[in-house]
Design a protein around this nucleic acid. Sequence first.
DNA 1: TTTCTTGTTGTGAACGTTCACTGTTGTTTT
DNA 2: AAAACAACAGTGAACGTTCACAACAAGAAA
Lengths: 344, 344
Amino acid sequence: MGRKPTGRPTSFDIAYAAGVSQPTVSRALRGDRSVSEKTRQKIEQIARDLNYTVDKNASSLRSQRSNTIALLFFEDPTPDETMINPFFLAMLGSITKATADEGLDLLISFQRMEDDWHVQYQDSHRADGLILLGYGDYTKYRERMDQLARQGTHFARWGSVSSDSSGVTVGTDNVEAGRLAGEHLLDQGRKRIAFLGHADDHYPEFNGRYRGLCAAMRKAGIEPDDSLQVDALTTEEEGRQAAKTLLDRGAEFDAIFAASDLIAIGAMRALADAGLSVPGDVAVVGFDDIPSASMTTPPLTTVMQDIRGAGQILVETLLAQVEGRDLPPRKLPGKLIVRGSSVA
Amino acid sequence: MGRKPTGRPTSFDIAYAAGVSQPTVSRALRGDRSVSEKTRQKIEQIARDLNYTVDKNASSLRSQRSNTIALLFFEDPTPDETMINPFFLAMLGSITKATADEGLDLLISFQRMEDDWHVQYQDSHRADGLILLGYGDYTKYRERMDQLARQGTHFARWGSVSSDSSGVTVGTDNVEAGRLAGEHLLDQGRKRIAFLGHADDHYPEFNGRYRGLCAAMRKAGIEPDDSLQVDALTTEEEGRQAAKTLLDRGAEFDAIFAASDLIAIGAMRALADAGLSVPGDVAVVGFDDIPSASMTTPPLTTVMQDIRGAGQILVETLLAQVEGRDLPPRKLPGKLIVRGSSVA
DNA sequence: TTTCTTGTTGTGAACGTTCACTGTTGTTTT
DNA sequence: AAAACAACAGTGAACGTTCACAACAAGAAA
């Protein structure tokens, strides 16, 4: 029936069987409206019978569109390489769904920041665009992003939304979310609120959360105490260390707002080790609402980010960019999830 | 410099700049040894200067090899679509690493079992092979796998290792792991051990774990009591329900071996609700060692699967298959992680 | 009737590689 | 010194689509 006795059928085989030309097959299967309904159905039927599928490579090569996006996690190297930040893992689920809804394929990669790989994804036509998820020292990533932007690579990033970085960014309104957390703690009568997490511009998301907390405190007539802010990255261990530092210093505090749940969980361990009760002695609020947050004792109060919305908006934003119409950066609201760690 | 005033450089541009023919460029960049060292270096240099990368689509089209594998999660539909089983999420990390090490790209998809999509991944030349991760009613998946095998699709699956299913499977030695868990509980002096999880052939992994438990008990001279086995799927809620069923029934038991950590966590909640202490009244052992397992109170004793090894072996196995040499199925050992939920 | 649409299909080329051969050197063997 | 063989590079075609354009029919407008 086909030209070749062996191998997968091609559009030529379908065309032959349907008695039309090969490009007509291509058009029909793509849903091009210039093909009559009758021939389209006939072609679709034959394609199904012969178990034919369009060759993705040939299609992408010719059309210069891969209908694929690459999801790149970039982070500072960690000891355990296969361990992924739980928050981004959740994001992955949402992005997968969003890409599937748009009929896109999703490539993923966890290349470390040292590698140049991510730069090549679009150049090599593997993907039409990139979604970047990352954490760690922001200033290190900026350079890469500028490079990507210069090369005309399409990408959308999850992170702190500001105008100073190249590329479109989607992220939670961290300042507002920090304010929510702060107000909640103040409502519980807490007055000396510690912040665990880096608070300088190298970590703009954490910085925003801290600024939100400070704003809430000032509004309540309390001047934030800088000595209650301790640097920490998003790991349980750093959270434990940070809380320990605070305790060793003899600092007085009745609440902790941690920049992430992992930090909060680590901090709770340190508090338990020191014989302090949560929320009795110290109320704790985290950020992210990772699955483990509800497993702790007491369950952790935290700020949930709109993960589902995030994935969808990231994909939308990226797709728009690929198609030449740029969408503006977007800020998503965070939502306070009150659990036992902050209320009596 | 090139033939075209605009757009990405092609291998022709590199060839022109290097004063060689275009196929030589292709050969050089592929590392073909029939290109002299000198010209290879020259070509590589020029390629770097011109920011050239090989077009993945053209390359894959011509060579009929995409150097990409697709990772497909298939599961029975759940209420929250973006929620992914934590164990498979961990597996994802390991598979990503393994594919990166082999220089492969990784496509992922969470298509539900209803869809036919997964069948098309290889046909459309998107991927050279498939890795299947899934849970739920096994008998439903068998049919699909037989279909894949019939079509000559290359795939490797994570799950229960047995000879009866088509395709190569890699998995933990569930019987042995179940025995480990059982022996541990028996060592703690427990005699009436309940099993929470489906134990019929529709769920061969859980079934293996149960058989292992039974074997350990018989070896210790205790005949397993069927009434202490309660069906449950891998969710916290089902675990809670299962434990509640057991309690409502007035069953006597001093230990629970849950077929997964999520089930175990749910069961611990039910025990707490009933005023029973862990491990005082009931010792609990889970399976998987998901991140949350160490967060519970008390921390959960569990069986850790060799996730890192799993990813590597799955990729190896699949790659071998693609290259025409079949590797045998593999069983990986599980490792007991003793925490507070099972020892006093 | 003639001309212009509109809808549908066919034609030839192009996307950017890799593959299978054919040449061309220069070196080794007989 | 002729023949044989490497080692390397070039030539033409092929992979399976999609694109731009031409061509044809049938009905509408002139």
